[in-house]
Nucleic acid binder design. Structure first.
Lengths: 345, 345
DNA sequence: TTGAAAGCGGTACCAT
DNA sequence: ATGGTACCGCTTTCAA
């Protein structure tokens, strides 16, 4: 944008050249818009002479023409967009990897994955916002949608809705990912190893309750009716917070702790060790998510492994569902949660 | 494509009810499409009687009407979409946090962030694919775009293009994020601490070379002309690979290693320690990214901190650029890379 | 207060 | 081998 000095032009915005359209290309090439469309899309049903093709391509290049996706899909009546609302919290390593794989697999199937940030909206409002994009499929990663939400999406043309959450939702394919099971498995493991006063870490970071709530509840339920007790421990992901918690450890009198996930477990283990608490002798520690770091710590960290579906499996499911929208929604239990016992417990 | 009902229709798909449009709402409410638009958008320039409003809302609700974003923005001639191509590799914690913040900040400014997966395409093809969405702004997180790409985007109506990469790109705002500086700082630090045979870890995971290349190069350049030598060390993010590398450690005769980032550093430190290598006595280790885990390890991990811009700062920059597209592109050096010296080096 | 109609940028049918 | 044109769903003048 070169400022031309001698133009006084008080209200002359930088003359935003209008975006070139296919009509502009047609004009420049001296053909019709139809021909432009045929050429640029390599329409096989129509044969266009080589000289014309060349002229069209030439004109398009010269103008820097780029087709307008919205116009195209408006006309087509459908898109190949698979929508994925972004999580309300920063993604962890597990989820990042999953999204990456899923995206790769879907793009190999010629879909386009769009992660769409809808902070603020919840429930059916969110579903409506997603539906405005007319995605061909939607993958909802948290329990952020109900039956009406699914209905809205389907009425708006979504051929498949897949939820990644603990409970199946009417009308949607379900990947049953039960965070309560994580807490339950952890608690059962600790109880089986003879622990009776069990702390459960609940992250203080906002938004995290979506995952931490069920994990806590699951632990509680697993120990209901036993001689063990559960103590909720609020912990922020800072060394300060961990040190403060460790300082009251003796008072808490806990002999075990389920630390929400491996990262919080690492943080807490460090603070406990520094405070002279021996792991696992004084207090057993178990995390979750089976991150690499748990294998690298000393003592190695026991954890609850929770298997996300492989990206390509899920992509295949989505593709199947899109091709055959009539089919009954599938429900896939995600192989629950398995305890990986290591040294810390 | 209307299916004519009296056709025997052997394949009768579940009669996919057509998606309701504003025309349907108008029909049901007994008003014109214009009125529907006025009511649903609360157009202030026009006063619609209360009974009519009610009827329209009623009809919309009954049909489950959701406006068609593509049609709307086609008509409007613009959108509030800020496009962010997804990284070619799974996002790390640093980047996840950044994206999360950026997204939140932008949505507070009434933009919509879309992460768009364009695997496979590169360079100008990718830019064209992005341009098809007619975003109002684009944030390109890796050196994946050149001046022509920027030009394509701008010609397609993008009012701001921001790159997050080592070198400024003509026409785009730049957040200068110099990965070479990271390697350079790490190498200088190790050299200053008396180390002379310095290994540099290069992840074997595909796609990572985008970041690891510059880090390696930076280290090389920092030590050029000194008495120190650089050895490139390929390492996959597995314990096996780390153990294999540790097994040849004596042969390598290295007294220091820059481990690409904190996660690889942790992996390698573990393997080295298990192999009897003392840190930092025998070999100094430094990572990068200043993740929490580096503070939790023992010995604590030296690292190179690289500051991403805060999400809200960047959101503000984008907003400014969108409002004032004529302005000269800004170039913001991202406070380089600072060494955080801890016990491991 | 409401409706008719043009038009945003493409695509694809039907002529020529 | 090409061109004319209707139409996708929505917004927004302009009239009534």
């Amino acid at each position: 944008m070169v400022q031309i000095p001698n133009t006084p032009a008080p209200t002359k915005p930088p003359a935003p050249r209008p975006v070139p359209t296919s009509a502009d290309v047609a004009r420049l090439a001296g053909v019709s818009r139809a021909t432009v469309s045929y050429v640029l899309n390599n329409t096989s049903a129509v044969r266009i002479s080589e000289p014309t093709r060349r002229r069209v391509h030439e004109a398009a290049r010269e103008l820097g023409y780029v087709p307008h996706a919205a116009a195209r899909s408006l006309r087509a009546g459908h898109s190949r967009v698979v929508l994925m609302p972004t999580l309300p919290v920063p993604a962890g390593p597990l989820y990042s990897q999953f999204v990456h794989d899923f995206q790769g697999a879907l793009s190999r199937l010629d879909y386009t994955v769009v992660q769409y940030g809808t902070s603020g909206l919840r429930g059916d409002d969110a579903a409506r916002a997603w539906a405005e994009l007319r995605p061909v499929a939607v993958l909802v990663p948290t329990p952020g949608i109900g039956p009406e939400g699914v209905a809205v999406l389907k009425r708006s043309g979504a051929r498949a809705v897949v939820t990644l959450s603990p409970v199946p939702v009417e009308g949607a394919h379900a990947l049953l990912l039960d965070h309560a099971r994580v807490g339950q498995s952890a608690a059962e493991h600790l109880h089986a190893r003879g622990r009776r006063r069990i702390g459960v870490v609940v992250p203080e970071e906002p938004g995290m309750e979506i995952f931490s709530g069920p994990r806590l509840t699951g632990a509680r339920e697993a120990l209901r009716g036993t001689d063990a007790t559960v103590v909720e421990l609020r912990l922020a992901y800072t060394q300060k917070s961990a040190a403060a918690l460790a300082a009251r450890w003796a008072d808490l009198g806990l002999d075990a702790v389920f630390a929400y996930n491996d990262e919080y477990a690492m943080l807490l283990m460090r603070a406990l060790t520094d405070a002279g608490v021996r792991i696992p002798e004084d207090t057993a520690v178990i995390g979750a998510d089976d991150l690499m770091l748990g294998r690298l710590l000393r003592p190695t960290l026991s954890t609850v492994r929770i298997a996300l579906p492989s990206g390509s499996e899920l992509a295949a499911l989505v593709d199947r569902a899109v091709r055959n929208p009539g089919a009954e929604p599938e429900s896939h239990p995600l192989s629950g949660a398995t305890v990986v016992h290591r040294e810390s417990s």
